[in-house]
Design a protein around this nucleic acid. Structure first.
Length: 951
RNA sequence: GCUGGGAUACCCGAGCGGUCAAAGGGGCCGGACUUAAGCUCCGGUGGCAAGGCCUUCGUGGGUUCAAAUCCCACUCCCAGCACCA
């Protein structure tokens, strides 16, 4: 066996660990590179999605080390969270034990893949030496006034027995378990993320996130500019504050709508004939399921509340409604309804027969009295204003004038509204960071003093299957505490923190993860975090959760002076989905479990076909990394995953491609092995191989530097091998050259398939480990491209000869055995050179070509004239579909022509090779005119394109 | 509905004005090697009367001497948001 995959991989993993090659320390003499993957929740074994994530990161970390960067590449675990708690319940254990068991298991899987982590920086967020800093930072937030405890309607998930942040509710369902969330009024802890709305939004313009992530964050923050306007109520002391982005439509208001949950509703209609209807509507809205709500929203519904609001400018009185389409949490929960210029209001007005008024026209010249058949939502000049000074104004100007008028009346002002709310931080769960607060009957809610930290989670808790709620509530040692202010008995806060808090700063902790005095040292962290993490890789599912929280957190830490940078992530790469074949019914548009392969659809009985769907446990289409490693080794799995698709693209699992990639690895091994056993025979092709190596290296570095891993792999694992094959085929057999080539090749192999590369690095007798090798700067030699072009020419000749031979064979009864090649006559070559020269001077061939040609001395020969003319045209103008050859030649082609390459001599020197490649007995090669014009092919001979005839 | 990203040969995918019948990979077909299979290597893989011609890069229009590539409209797919005032 040339290469024992399994043993070799394990061997080198041990060697790397022994030599501590991946440990990183500050080194100001090198540029730093902080490479990071979103750390995993340790749920047992590593799955393919992890493999993809970490293989991308590892290849980049290894590549940057090769480039001489000081690379920080740590790994740790996001180990607080519900699943550990649930697992603990199942086995009557403690989440702490479950967590550490899982960490050991997933870490082993990661180590088997050969990832080059600096394990010294290991951290688990559920360990007290991590979460104690969560608490200290929390106290700092509190001091800075960013912590707030308040009673508010919050999202509650019954399954998870806890509240959820807005970001964690998707389509009204819990992001973790999928159960529909309900609204509850509860007193909860918030972090004032809204203080940073503007910066979080504006900074997006300056960071290199993928466009879709930016868009998602922009949508989530949802800033809109507009006005708050107060409407007085007739015969009532309260007023209604509405938010609108369209103050320019103020005169079109024909009613005001409150969300049914709005507190004013009750105030307005209590003890009136309208109360019952409102209560019904409110009930209906509160209990609506997601499905019903979507159906219902098509049908706008509302009830009159019995009172009238007064338009602050026109003083007109309009009815007040409660409407199911008004969202209570956005703006003020109340809208001024302008049916003429808002489609929702239009629909509502139609249904309840309310007046629709036009107060804008699209163009100055439009008729202000023209009836509206749907809302006109664009901008345009104001019309029909009941007060002077507004008609004719439009857009921003109109808005500003209206806002000014409102200010004068003291009933409104310009304002900005955000969709982003404060971060609801508290969870009613056990397995999270305890919120370091104490409830004292006399002193109120007060923070745990810094010197009493950490507040530790008790280990003496037994979890049982039928348990509900948070076991901390029942743990008297934990709960009972003396008040740090007055010394009386008090109760400890039992809510814990959202786990997104843990992941909002772990990347800074990595920089200094063994610090037991503070979360991290500023100087050290500034070094690694300068300009943000250089490459951050993870799933798109965190686009508005983790990635937004972490940005927010970083900005606070910056403002508190703990760190200098305000944006944590430099380049972000969101890896694509990993798909795998799945039974699919195209009629029902449903994926089925893999058990249904080759069966028919259980719903419609159609034959099921196959399509690629996201790997998931429920579909059973997952592939176990462990199994694949056992069969093929880590290198092959890594190659498959990195060559299958670029990092951002989705990729399909394919057993046959994986197998093919394994064969590719075998071929590479064999090729290198053959190279190391070569004789020392010099040949013409030697230089070509080294030129090719340099060319490939340069291209490879360019691709890899830009995270173009797929393109990089194409060069390192495919082009390099086929170039090697070509070298051998051309008779290359020079150990010295082979060694040079392999020494250049192995580093290129190492980011993606590090084990095999390391193994052969040693067989090459190189000093030290390839894993810590720094690639010297690659410079192409001056004549590289010429050498490559020459070989390219030869290949081109062989290619077209093959084509023509096929043709000839079809027209011949006997086996073709001879070839006559006539290379371009000298005058055509000279003409071509002339044309290339002219083209470089931007000569206008169309306009001046013919005259120029006539001025050439060669044109004087009558017998040639027609052919010269044709040649000239073919070189410069071309035909309808093809441009002149001078425009289609590559730079290298031009170089060959300019250098006066003697094509005949060159081909003759490769005569043996041509005979072999073309399977011929004889071949004669000469320049046009120096031998018989066989089959009249002289006239088709062009520079770099000889005439050929077979017999 | 809005926002963002897509649609390229049997499949996956690169290309993003002329060097494009379109890189690379898979699959398939043929050849060499082998007792044979596998492996490996080489070649082919839109059509045809074949150093050429014709048709093709979601559909229909347009700009251009020239379009997979630029512009317009449409269809479909994926993702996110969604009565956000």
């Amino acid at each position: 066996m040339i290469y024992d995959v399994q043993n070799s991989e394990l061997h080198w993993q041990k060697e790397w660990a022994k030599a501590k090659v991946f440990d990183s320390e500050i080194d100001l003499s090198k540029p730093k590179f902080y490479c990071l993957e979103m750390f995993p929740y340790p749920s047992g074994n590593m799955h393919m999605g992890h493999v993809r994530n970490y293989s991308i990161g590892d290849s980049m970390a290894r590549f940057q080390r090769l480039m001489g960067k000081n690379v920080l590449y740590p790994m740790g675990y996001d180990s607080f969270g519900m699943p550990a708690e649930n697992a603990a319940k199942k086995e009557n254990g403690h989440p702490h034990h479950v967590t550490h068991r899982n960490i050991a298991s997933i870490r082993q899987d990661q180590e088997r893949m050969g990832y080059s982590y600096d394990w010294n920086r290991f951290l688990a967020t559920s360990d007290v030496n991590y979460y104690r800093w969560n608490q200290e930072i929390f106290l700092m937030f509190n001091e800075r006034g960013l912590v707030e405890r308040r009673s508010a309607p919050v999202n509650w998930c019954n399954e998870c027995d806890t509240v959820l942040a807005n970001e964690q509710v998707k389509n009204n369902r819990c992001w973790r378990c999928g159960l529909e969330v309900i609204q509850k009024d509860m007193s909860q802890w918030f972090l004032k993320m809204s203080d940073y709305s503007d910066e979080l939004l504006d900074e997006l313009d300056n960071i290199t996130f993928p466009e879709n992530v930016k868009t998602m964050q922009r949508n989530w923050i949802g800033r809109s500019h507009g006005a708050n306007i107060d409407f007085m109520i007739r015969d009532h002391q309260s007023k209604i504050g509405v938010f609108t982005t369209r103050p320019d439509t103020i005169f079109g208001v024909t009613f005001v709508t409150l969300s049914p949950e709005h507190p004013l509703c009750e105030e307005l209609c209590k003890n009136t004939e309208w109360e019952l209807d409102w209560r019904k509507l409110k009930e209906e809205c509160l209990k609506m399921s997601e499905f019903e709500r979507i159906n219902m929203l098509k049908d706008k519904k509302g009830v009159f509340l019995g009172k009238y609001a007064i338009n602050p400018l026109s003083k007109e009185e309009v009815p007040i409604y409660a409407g199911n389409f008004v969202v209570s949490s956005y703006g003020t929960g109340a809208v001024m309804a302008v049916p003429g210029h808002d489609q929702r209001d239009y629909d509502f007005a139609k249904k309840y027969n309310l007046p629709i008024r036009r107060v804008l026209v699209a163009k100055e010249s439009d008729n202000p009295e023209e009836l509206l058949t749907s809302a006109f939502e664009g901008y345009g000049p104001m019309v029909n204003s009941p007060i002077d000074g507004f008609d004719g104004l439009s857009g921003e100007e109109a808005k500003n004038v209206v806002i000014e008028a409102l200010k004068k009346e003291q009933s409104g002002e310009g304002t900005t509204q955000y969709r982003l709310k404060d971060w609801l931080l508290s969870r009613q769960r056990f397995w999270g960071t305890p919120i370091p607060m104490i409830h004292c009957d006399s002193c109120g809610v007060i923070p745990v003093p810094k010197e009493s930290l950490p507040v530790e989670l008790p280990l003496d808790v037994v979890f049982t299957e039928d348990q509900r709620g948070n076991p901390l509530d029942q743990h008297s040692d934990f709960v009972n505490v003396t008040c740090p202010d007055c010394g009386k008995m008090a109760r400890r806060e039992t809510d814990t923190m959202d786990t997104f808090y843990d992941s909002s700063w772990y990347f800074m902790r990595y920089c200094d993860s063994n610090n037991d005095q503070s979360p991290f040292d500023k100087e050290i962290t500034d070094y690694w975090m300068e300009g943000g993490i250089d490459l951050y890789i993870g799933g798109i599912e965190h686009a508005v959760m983790h990635l937004l929280y972490a940005r927010f957190f970083t900005k606070i830490l910056r403002d508190a002076g703990l760190i200098s940078t305000g944006e944590p992530f430099g380049r972000l790469v969101c890896q694509g989905m990993l798909n795998s074949p799945t039974p699919f019914c195209s009629r029902c548009n449903i994926d089925y479990h893999v058990d249904y392969f080759d069966k028919s659809c259980p719903t419609c009985n159609d034959k099921l076909n196959s399509r690629s769907s996201k790997m998931s446990k429920s579909l059973g289409n997952t592939v176990s990394p462990g199994d694949m490693i056992e069969i093929y080794g880590a290198d092959t799995v890594r190659l498959f995953i990195l060559f299958g698709a670029n990092p951002e693209a989705g990729m399909d699992w394919s057993d046959s491609v994986l197998e093919a990639n394994n064969r590719q690895m075998n071929s590479i091994v064999e090729a290198i092995n053959n190279g190391l056993n070569m004789k020392k025979v010099e040949s013409k092709i030697d230089n070509w191989l080294l030129s090719k190596l340099r060319k490939n290296q340069v291209l490879w570095i360019k691709s890899m530097s830009n995270v173009g891993i797929r393109e990089g792999v194409m060069l390192s694992h495919f082009s390099m091998l086929s170039d090697w094959s070509w070298y051998c085929r051309r008779g290359g057999n020079n150990y010295t050259i082979a060694k040079l080539f392999i020494k250049g090749w192995l580093p290129m192999l190492s980011p993606v398939t590090p084990h095999v590369a390391e193994e052969f690095w040693h067989r090459l007798n190189e000093d030290g480990l390839l894993a810590s090798y720094v690639l010297p700067e690659i410079t192409e030699h001056e004549d590289d491209s010429y050498i490559l072009a020459q070989e390219e020419y030869l290949r081109g000749v062989i290619d077209s000869a093959r084509n023509v031979k096929g043709l000839a064979q079809r027209h011949s009864n006997q086996k073709i055995t001879t070839l006559t090649i006539q290379t371009s006559p000298e005058w055509k070559r000279n003409l071509a050179k002339e044309v290339i020269k002219l083209q470089k001077e931007n000569f206008n061939f169309k306009k001046e070509g013919t005259n120029y040609l006539k001025s050439l001395s060669i044109f004087g020969k009558d017998e040639f004239r027609a052919e010269i003319f044709q040649t000239w045209n073919s070189l410069t103008i071309g035909s309808k579909k093809k441009r002149g050859r001078v425009f289609t030649w590559s730079n290298n082609d031009k170089k060959l022509i300019e250098s006066s390459l003697n094509e005949s001599e060159f081909l003759k020197s490769n005569q043996e090779f041509l005979l072999k490649e073309l399977d011929l007995k004889s071949i004669s090669i000469y320049s046009v005119g120096e031998g018989e014009d066989v089959a009249g092919k002289a006239k088709v001979a062009f520079p770099l394109d000889p005439g050929m005839s077979f017999a």
